[in-house]
């Protein structure tokens, strides 16, 4: 008697009862709890925590911070040039991604490209871009173009295509049908409809995605130097391999400051756009 009858007449003696879940659903939920608990225990056993290392972790952390402070400001010129390169890498990479992702987004949007085959092809491009980490992309381009900011820029661009293309494609698909219909009825060509019907509707999403991705790319390009793809990561890599923690501290503090600043700037601009 867990299911309430749809039309129980008054006085017919049917017990009106309601429960959130059926017995089957309840059993299923318990099963999920048990499986989750097993998974947690299993994974804890796999990562092999060494208790001694765990106990002195606080002391090690404090020690590391002590060695970082005070910062070695003689390292600042190297950090600054790395920072500028990182910002350039992020910006150029984002611009390149916008240019490359826009046609793919048009191909992926089912209301623009009415071919399931082409939609799938576009989605394949987007997924392959996203499924490869930017560090892996960087390794690939360092192998092709040699170490430096060019490899970093391409890595950022190729990594961003999937993100930008997917969000842009979804924004295009969400465009209202009405205005498009009106422009079609006025005899506008497909290109004119794209410019005057879709673009005004997609524009806020476009700039919002561009800013968001630029924000992410500043963070991602900061570590690309670890694999030799230029930027502030090169300075960090040099400092840590020499065990100059006062230099590494300066680099980390700089990255932290820049990331906070870009976050503030992009959120300010975004509220103005929308």
């Amino acid at each position: 008697m867990t299911r309430a009858p749809a039309t129980a007449g008054i006085g017919t003696g049917i017990i009106r009862e309601w429960q959130r879940f059926t017995p089957g659903e309840r059993l299923g939920r318990y099963a999920v709890y048990v499986v989750s608990a097993i998974a947690v225990i299993w994974s804890l056993r796999t990562i092999e925590v060494i208790p001694e290392f765990l106990y002195d972790a606080p002391a090690q952390t404090a020690d590391l911070f002590q060695r970082m402070w005070p910062f070695d400001w003689r390292f600042w010129p190297t950090v600054l040039s790395g920072l500028v390169e990182t910002l350039h890498t992020a910006t150029l990479g984002t611009l390149m991604a916008l240019v490359l992702a826009s046609p793919v987004a048009l191909l992926a949007a089912r209301n623009i490209t009415r071919s399931a085959w082409l939609n799938q092809l576009a989605n394949l491009i987007l997924v392959s871009s996203r499924s490869v980490n930017s560090l892996i992309w960087a390794l690939l381009f360092v192998a092709i173009f040699g170490p430096g900011a060019l490899a970093g820029t391409l890595a950022i661009a190729f990594r961003s295509i999937g993100f930008v293309g997917k969000l842009l494609g979804e924004a295009i698909e969400e465009a209202q049908r009405g205005p498009i219909e009106a422009l079609t009825a006025a005899g506008a060509s497909p290109m004119a409809i794209l410019i005057k019907g879709y673009w005004p509707q997609v524009e806020p999403a476009f700039w919002s995605v561009a800013l968001f991705r630029w924000d992410i790319n500043v963070r991602e390009s900061a570590v690309l130097g670890l694999v030799g793809a230029g930027g502030i990561g090169v300075a960090l890599d040099t400092a840590t391999s020499n065990l100059y923690w006062d230099q590494a501290g300066l680099v980390l503090a700089t990255i932290f400051t820049v990331v906070v600043l870009t976050e503030i700037i992009t959120s300010r601009i975004r509220t103005r756009i929308i």
């Binding site: 009405g178 205005p179 219909e181 009106a182 006025a186 005899g187 509707q201 806020p204």
Partner: peptide, 16 residues
């Protein structure tokens, strides 16, 4: 089509 104007229930203006 351009010789035929159309007026819609929901106006169908490009809002932005």
């Amino acid at each position: 089509r351009r010789m035929i104007g159309m007026v819609f229930q929901e106006y169908n203006l490009v809002e932005r």
